[in-house]
């Protein structure tokens, strides 16, 4: 009788622990399966000129690929950080995601344009290839074209310190 009571309790305790862990897991922090994969070849036009951008125009050094849109509130908040990073010398390429060209260009003239250029991903096809679901999203691309990290949500100082700076520090040494 005691043994059965103990077994019952242990089974209950195990389930309690497992479910508690699940309850406190932030599902938005899942690591992207694209990390350590090569950045797929991008075949999209430039936002301003609407000409197709050759793959050669991507920076040959470690750079940031920032997915943004004029309809995205969090992008306005993040944009200050993006401009700061650009001022520090970090190359940033934009992906204008599911947006209207006029709105996007207007947004850049209001909030500033730190991007080398922005791809126009009107249909969100590049977004699908990159597993985008929560704009803004930022990819750190290594000089070998490998995706080193993917940041979902706006960039914060903490993210800059912990995830961005370390990957760029090597270049400055």
């Amino acid at each position: 009788m005691n043994l059965q009571k103990n077994i019952s309790f242990i089974v209950f305790a195990i389930f309690f622990i497992i479910l508690s862990i699940g309850l406190f897991t932030d599902t938005k922090k899942i690591q992207s399966p694209l990390i350590n994969k090569k950045l797929p070849e991008i075949v999209l036009p430039d936002l301003k000129s609407q000409n197709m951008i050759s793959h050669n125009f991507l920076p040959k050094e470690t750079f940031l690929l920032n997915v943004w849109a004029s309809w995205c509130q969090a992008c306005i908040v993040e944009h200050e950080k993006i401009k700061n990073l650009s001022n520090k010398g970090i190359k940033i390429v934009g992906v204008n995601y599911k947006d209207q060209r006029e709105d996007a260009i207007g947004w850049l003239s209001i909030y500033g344009n730190p991007y080398l250029f922005s791809y126009s991903d009107k249909e969100g096809r590049l977004g699908l290839e990159l597993g985008v679901y929560g704009v803004p999203e930022t990819f750190i691309i290594g000089e070998d074209g490998i995706i080193k990290d993917k940041i979902v949500g706006p960039i914060t100082d903490e993210i800059i310190n912990k995830r961005i700076d370390p990957l760029f520090r090597k270049n400055n040494d």
Binding site: T27, I30, Q31, P33, L34, E129, Y133
Partner: peptide
């Protein structure tokens, strides 16, 4: 889908 968005 899982290659781009994870098993989730």
């Amino acid at each position: 889908l899982t290659d781009r968005y994870s098993d989730f």
